[in-house]
Design a protein around this nucleic acid. Structure first.
Lengths: 272, 272
DNA sequence: CCTTAAAATTTGCAGATATCAAACGCCGGT
DNA sequence: ACCGGCGTTTGATATCTGCAAATTTTAAGG
């Protein structure tokens, strides 16, 4: 991930649109702190290719701005991100319209239920609710920390299936379908077929495509203007999600929840 | 909040330590977007005192870096903040050690229970759990979106009471105690007395000092090295939190929870 | 307590870059 | 077709950034 930027400096103002270089650098600093889970000035400046003096100035600035804190010699991302995240969440209509319904779904099924949003071809967990029997906490914890690709989850495929054609092509083109398990779909053509099926049926499944032993069912949530705004899904161990329950019962429950959320979106007005 | 920075530009490099100006500007842009709940280029550039051209470059940069998205002509903060917030949360020992205990507390009391962390003299909600009878959702929603002052909440006072003396003095000196209700403590001397009491008793109360009709009880959580790492609190309408329950029962439950969390902190190893 | 090494912070300087103004392009409305 | 508002691009210059190296602080031993 650290690759990216061209060796700036001497002669690379070829054509790209104008950007604020220092802001990009600051973003990289934040990313390094995230990746390394905090660290000393020396740690961080070694990871970036910048002088300690330079990185020091960046870190001081980020501390001043409240994005980073220092605690006995270690820099780490500040709690401000928690508050900002909460703010973004509460601004998101899908979250406001859907979190209670997802709670109900988790309760009814006893498993993990998720409300998923999409941005830049990645999915973000907007809300998670744990049913009584929910398993794989660690996995879900990681899910929430990083926007995931769309090709190997039920919610992701449900969203991808309903995104406008041009955007779908763009996402599929710019993304490598990393193999997670034997079942992961890594072929673009196969993925397209699956997506057509999903549009047909109205729901998506994830049959141990991301984690061995885990299945999931996901349904898209369409906004008032028929564009997809996100998805709902339930994830459970294969042993508890098979046959009828996997093929009929769970899809019905997930789609029902998605439908309820759609109604909430139509009905409610989420004023500023 | 937008005040702050000295009129940079002509002649203010008097003495302050060196900072990256563009990063500060970008932080302001983010803050404006947060405050205005998104907006057009024109909106945002009017709020800042910068040319549209300049702000345009900043916004493009922030979009590239993934902090901002554009959706039909409106810029808003991206879902990335949700993921980053989650990451910070999961890195925080207090959260890992305490969220289940707070769930239990909310269940036992039937009210809102919170796990609070402190940073830069402000409190951040690390975790919130709603008991069966919990009320005032909107208020708690706002609480989660912005780090609060420490003088008018139970958790805040519990933390402030146990912070090292020098830091406490610094926080009290640099903070204005905004009056929220008739009961808000706005006098530094009075606050100091209250804090001494709190250290004595081991818990803090908030008797309609922030919201009329709402009371709260908070207890500090001390880390392995005896420094305060945060607090636990329960908030309830005054009608359900009075007499014995307010003075004895609830403090005991909150302190017990805080104690359990302390034990978890001592015991568990939260490896990177 | 003193010595030494490592880490953090500060500073001068030269080259890179952010900012403004102004021009341009793109709509939607009349 | 004309106008007005909004977004985008661009050239030029004053300003800021980033390196290197000096200085201070902190930590570790002896």
């Amino acid at each position: 991930m650290t690759a990216g930027s061209p060796r700036n400096g001497t002669e690379n103002e070829r054509d790209g649109p104008r950007r604020i270089k220092s802001v990009c650098t600051a973003a990289t600093v934040i990313d390094v702190i995230k990746q390394q889970q905090g660290g000393s000035l020396t740690d961080i400046s070694q990871e970036l290719e910048l002088t300690k003096g330079t990185v020091h100035t960046y870190l001081q600035t980020l501390v001043d701005c409240g994005f980073v804190t220092r605690e006995n010699g270690e820099y780490r991302l500040s709690f401000q991100f928690i508050a900002l995240g909460e703010h973004v969440r509460n601004e998101t209509d899908l979250y406001m319209a859907g979190h209670s319904e997802v709670d109900a779904l988790a309760e009814r099924t006893g498993e993990y239920a998720h409300l998923i949003g999409e941005e830049r071809g990645r999915e973000t967990v907007l809300y998670e609710s744990r049913g009584e029997f929910a398993v794989a906490m660690d996995y879900h914890l990681r899910m929430r920390e990083t926007p995931q690709h769309l090709h190997d989850t039920a919610a992701g495929k449900a969203i991808l299936a309903h995104v406008p054609t041009d955007r779908r092509d763009e996402i599929i083109a710019n993304q490598e379908f990393e193999r997670q398990t034997a079942n992961t779909i890594t072929d673009a053509a196969e993925l397209r077929e699956t997506l057509a099926d999903i549009r047909e049926r109205g729901y998506a499944v994830n049959d141990e495509e991301e984690i061995r032993g885990m299945r999931a069912v996901g349904a898209p949530v369409l906004g008032p203007d028929e564009t997809v705004v996100g998805a709902v899904s339930v994830t459970a161990p294969t042993s508890r999600l098979k046959d009828e329950r996997f093929r009929t019962e769970m899809p019905e429950q997930v789609m029902e929840t998605a439908n309820l959320i759609e109604v909430n979106l139509e009905t409610a007005r989420f004023d500023s």
